[in-house]
Amino acid sequence: MNYHFDFSFLAGSVGPLLSGLRVTLELAIAANIIGVIFGFLLCLLAMSGIALVRLPAQLFIEFFRCTPALLQIVWFFYCIPMLLDVFIDPITMGVLALGLNLTAFNAEAYRAGVQAVPKEHLDACVALGLRPWQRTIYVVLPQALRSAMPVLMTNGIGTLQQSALVAIVAVADLMYVGKSLATEAYRPLETYSIVALIYFALSLPIAKLVHIVERRQDAVVSR
């Protein structure tokens, strides 16, 4: 291998990379907020005893879980403006596509947490005269969130990585900026290596935190 690595050209590209990183973080954080909140609501709808409520929610989950995230992003960017005759800011569209995808996966994580809530706790809610919404907010949600937390965090890492897919529709995130720099400087190895290291540096602390949360949960269960 006679290739010589040269990272010097990146010295003047720190600004664009930081700008792309900011967009990536905006996409990931906003999508995770949507996924965490609406994932639980979708979970409740999917577990409803009313078929007219349950079936559309289950269809939503299966659609987003069984189709490629890249296809979903492309569909949102090109089909929604054509169907609805509206223009939405590219970053907002990216957040919407990633957030809905994450919502479907988080709904499944929440479902496992909700099913793990002991029946005795629900019976106690009835005995105390709590209304359904009080039972959901004060008893079911905290326990389901605690049980689902490792999976939610793992899904969050996946969304951070999947945010790179918006580069295909010209959203100026970290991946798009990296691709542009690689094309301009004819240095793809150096550029994509730096971009990969940035994604790795963002994901690794969260992955380590997931392991800590899992160990603590295992310790609580084993008591």
Rank of each mutant, 00 (worst) to 15 (best):
E26W: 08
L152M: 12
S203M: 09
H121Y: 12
F87K: 14
A144M: 11
M175H: 00
R111N: 08
L41H: 08
L17K: 05
F76N: 00
E214H: 06
S193D: 07
Q162F: 15
Y199E: 02
N2V: 04
Y138E: 04
M175Y: 14
A219G: 00
L128H: 00
L141M: 11
L45F: 13
I198N: 00
N2G: 13
A167L: 08
Y3C: 13
T183P: 04
L165E: 02
H211R: 12
K179N: 14
C125F: 12
A104G: 08
P188I: 13
D89V: 01
E184T: 12
V74R: 00
S222F: 04
F5H: 15
F105I: 03
G12K: 06
H4W: 13
A148Q: 02
A107V: 00
Q115A: 07
L181W: 04
A11Y: 02
D218T: 06
S193V: 08
S180E: 12
A104M: 06
L44M: 06
G39I: 00
I88G: 09
L122E: 08
K208Q: 14
W133G: 07
G12E: 06
D6P: 05
L41C: 06
V177F: 13
S8A: 15
A97S: 01
L189A: 14
S203I: 09
E62N: 08
P56T: 04
I137D: 07
V14P: 01
E26M: 11
L45V: 09
A148R: 02
R131K: 14
Y186W: 15
N101W: 02
V171R: 01
S180T: 14
L197K: 07
N155L: 01
L96N: 04
A112K: 02
L130D: 05
S13P: 01
A172N: 11
P81C: 05
V86I: 15
M1H: 12
V86Q: 09
M82C: 12
R65M: 04
A28T: 10
L84K: 05
A127N: 05
V210A: 01
A124S: 13
L174N: 08
V36W: 09
R111V: 03
T136S: 06
G39F: 07
I194C: 14
M1K: 12
Q134H: 10
T191Y: 07
C79P: 07
L160A: 02
Q161L: 15
V95N: 09
H121W: 10
F5K: 02
C79D: 09
L130I: 10
P16V: 09
V86G: 03
L128E: 04
I198T: 05
G99L: 03
E108C: 03
Y192N: 11
I212W: 13
R22K: 13
L84N: 10
F40Y: 15
R216N: 07
L10P: 06
P150W: 02
I137Q: 11
L41I: 13
K208L: 13
A57W: 03
D85L: 14
A144H: 00
Q161E: 15
I206C: 12
F5G: 13
D85W: 13
